[in-house]
């Protein structure tokens, strides 16, 4: 699903994203400068479970669950998420209704809006961020959490029943 035709060839999702936001979602993370990200575009709506083993930027809508385990997840400014999510580092620039579990860190940026509960060793709210819920922090738990990350079985981001759950949003969603 997260593959695209380029010059007649099918390429992995990690090679698709060319915009700078998707390519380097975490400016303050050294590892992200060399790791590219899959992108769920602003017109895409997914209902179901998103799991994977690569970084992901979501500019569209997801309803269900998101589990990227040891990777980085960015909810872009146009992202609308109604789901519980888990990843190593999570940055929210868009809107999230659901619980957020970051194994290392969660950042809610100045454009981010979160209604739910956040669990992470470190949580950063930027000035202007909107948050309602609870924040569970354990600064001493970082080492423990990063050494017990589960290894996902898949090497590519995927969803369950993609033919049923992935739909190209009509133009009225506007991303």
């Amino acid at each position: 699903m997260f593959e695209k035709q380029r010059n007649g060839k099918t390429v992995p999702a990690s090679d698709v994203s060319s915009d700078s936001a998707a390519a380097t979602p975490f400016q303050d993370s050294p590892s992200s400068s060399v790791r590219r990200s899959a992108l769920i575009g602003s017109s895409i709506k997914i209902t179901g479970d998103v799991v994977g083993d690569e970084n992901l930027v979501i500019d569209g809508s997801v309803e269900g669950t998101i589990n990227l385990s040891s990777n980085e997840l960015v909810i872009g400014q146009s992202g609308h998420i109604n789901a519980n999510m888990s990843a190593n580092i999570i940055r929210v620039d868009g809107e999230v209704k659901g619980d957020i579990n970051g194994q290392e860190k969660v950042i809610v940026s100045k454009t981010g809006r979160v209604k739910g509960n956040i669990v992470a060793p470190r949580v950063t709210l930027e000035d202007g961020a909107k948050f309602k819920g609870s924040i569970d922090m354990d600064p001493g738990g970082l080492e423990t959490s990063t050494t017990h990350m589960e290894k996902p079985g898949s090497s590519l981001t995927k969803t369950k029943g993609v033919n049923d759950i992935l739909e190209k949003a009509s133009s009225d969603t506007g991303g």
């Binding site: 709210l125 000035d127 961020a129 819920g133 609870s134 922090m137 354990d138 738990g141």
Partner: peptide
């Protein structure tokens, strides 16, 4: 109140659960 960057940062030094009721 609502969650503010400063209050979250202050308590990030503690093992804690913060409830913001706004």
């Amino acid at each position: 109140g609502s969650a503010t960057p400063e209050t979250v940062e202050f308590f990030s030094n503690y093992k804690c659960r913060l409830h913001f009721s706004d």
